[in-house]
Nucleic acid binder design. Structure first.
Lengths: 225, 225
DNA sequence: GTAATCATTAAGTCTGTGTAAACAGTCCGC
DNA sequence: GCGGACTGTTTACACAGACTTAATGATTAC
C-alpha cells in the first residue's frame, strides 16, 4: 500500500513565514505549494487541488476569510481541509473563521512542532487507514508486528488473511461489500474470483477459532464479536 | 429526517468548568455526560459511546492523555472525536496530546463561543464522511451495518427486504408505486411478477413484528409508524 | 354482487456461500 | 539448483436460504 504525498497550499504575504512553513511541511513529506496573496491562492488551489489550504487572514487582494468562503462555495473544495493562520487573535475573527468552514485556527507566532502536530492531526482524522493497534474485547490486532492475539494466544495469519482481517476490524459492525474488499485488499486492478474471498474468510475463522466475522448474504462481510 | 442529538462526554475535576461547558453545549442541542476523573470518564465512555470526548489533561485517577490513549487503542473509539482542554499550555504536552490521537487541543481559559465554534467545526468535518442512519421513533435503519433495530432488538433482513425497507423509509408517508419499487429495488431491466413485491412486504412486516407498512390499494405501499 | 386487487401459503428455482481439494508460485535451507 | 513448506488462487460440488412463482383465500372498490 503506497501513500501518495499530500498536497498543501500555503498562502501568506510574509515571505519568511512562507519559507518556515514550507521547510517544515516538506520535511514531513508533504508536497508544498505557495501563494503570496488571496488571488494567487485561489488560482493555485483551482489548478493543483490541494488536500489542505493554509490561509493567512490578512493578505493583499483577498483576505483569508474571503478565500475560504469562495473555496467552500465550490463543490470541488467541499472536503478540502482549511486552516487559518493569523497574528490577529481576536475572538470574533476566530469564530467567524471557524464558522466559514475552516477546520482549525492558529495564532502566530506558532512553534513549527505544534503547527505540524495540528496539520498531522487533521490528516489523521481524514484518512482512517492508519496502522495502530486495534483492541476489541479480548482480541488485539497489531498491524506493525503483524500479530493477532485472542486472549493470550498469539495467532499467525498469512499476509492476505491479515490484511483482510484488518480491513474488517477497522470498522466493526460495518458491512464491507465484496467489491470494497477486493479493491482494498487485492487492489483495483487485480482480477480474482469471488470464491477467493470466501476461502480467506474461512481460513481466518478457522485460525482465530472464534466467531467474529458475520456473513451478510448477497452483500458482504462484517466484523463483530 | 430527524438528526439524533450528538453525545458529548466532558471530563474535568473542576465542577465550575464542567458546569459552564455543559451549559453551553446543552444550549447548542448536544446531549452532555460528565465525569470528574479519568476512571469515571473511561467507564462512562464505554457505557454511553459518545461522539465527542472532552478531556482535561490534569485529572485525578488517570490523566487526560492516559484516557485518550486507552480509548484510541480500542476499535470502538477509533472514530470518536477527542479534545484536550488544559490550563497547562506547554508545547510538549500539546504535541504529545495531538500525537496521541486527539483532534484538538484547547487552552484554558477559553471563551465559550470559541469553544463552541471549535466543537462545531469538528462535527462539521465528521459529518461529511459518515453514512446516515435513519431513525424513526424506536426504529433505526443502518445501511452501513445492514441492521434494523426495533427497540433494542436487532432484526436481520435479507438483501431485497432490506433495500425495499430502506426505499420506503427514506420518505415516510410517501406512497411508492409498484413501478417505482420495481425500478429502484430490482432495476429497470429485471422483469418480475407483481406478487413478488407483496411477498417481500409480507416478510418485512413479519420480521419487524410491527405494523409500519401500509398498503394503498391500486397504488402501492408507504412506510408509516 | 362482481371484478379487481392484495394477503397468504406452499412449493420450486436459483443464486450465493461454505468447504475440500488441487494447482501454481514463492521463499527457504541445504 | 533441488525439494519441502507455505501462501494464494482456482475449481468443483453440496447445501442453505433467498427469491420467485403459482394457487387459493381475503379484502376492497365500484
Amino acid at each position: 500500500m503506497e501513500t501518495k504525498a499530500r498536497k498543501v497550499l500555503i498562502a501568506d504575504d510574509e515571505p519568511d513565514i512562507l519559507e518556515i512553513l514550507k521547510y517544515n511541511l516538506s520535511n514531513e513529506g508533504y508536497e508544498v505549494i505557495t501563494a503570496k496573496d488571496g488571488d494567487e491562492a485561489l488560482e493555485k488551489a483551482r489548478r493543483t487541488q490541494p488536500d489542505l489550504v493554509i490561509l493567512d487572514v490578512m493578505m493583499p487582494k483577498k483576505t483569508g476569510v474571503e478565500v475560504c468562503e469562495l473555496l467552500r462555495s465550490q463543490a470541488a473544495f467541499k472536503d478540502t481541509l482549511i486552516i487559518f493562520l493569523t497574528a490577529v487573535n481576536d475572538e470574533g475573527t476566530q469564530i467567524r473563521g471557524l464558522e466559514t468552514g475552516a477546520d482549525d485556527y492558529l495564532s502566530k507566532p506558532i512553534s513549527p512542532k505544534v503547527f505540524l502536530s495540528r496539520v498531522n492531526a487533521l490528516f489523521r482524522r481524514l484518512n482512517k487507514t492508519e496502522a495502530r493497534v486495534l483492541t476489541l474485547e479480548n482480541m488485539t490486532i497489531d498491524p506493525e508486528r503483524f500479530i493477532v492475539k485472542v486472549g493470550d494466544e498469539e495467532i499467525i495469519l498469512a499476509k492476505k488473511e491479515f490484511e483482510l482481517l484488518c480491513l474488517l476490524a477497522q470498522k466493526p459492525g460495518r458491512v464491507f461489500l465484496r467489491n470494497e474488499i477486493l479493491n482494498q485488499v487485492w487492489g483495483n486492478d487485480v482480477i480474482v474470483g469471488d470464491r477467493t474471498i470466501d476461502v480467506h474468510i474461512r481460513k481466518i475463522r478457522q485460525k482465530l477459532g472464534i466467531d467474529c466475522i458475520t456473513t451478510v448474504k448477497g452483500v458482504g462481510y462484517k466484523f463483530e464479536l
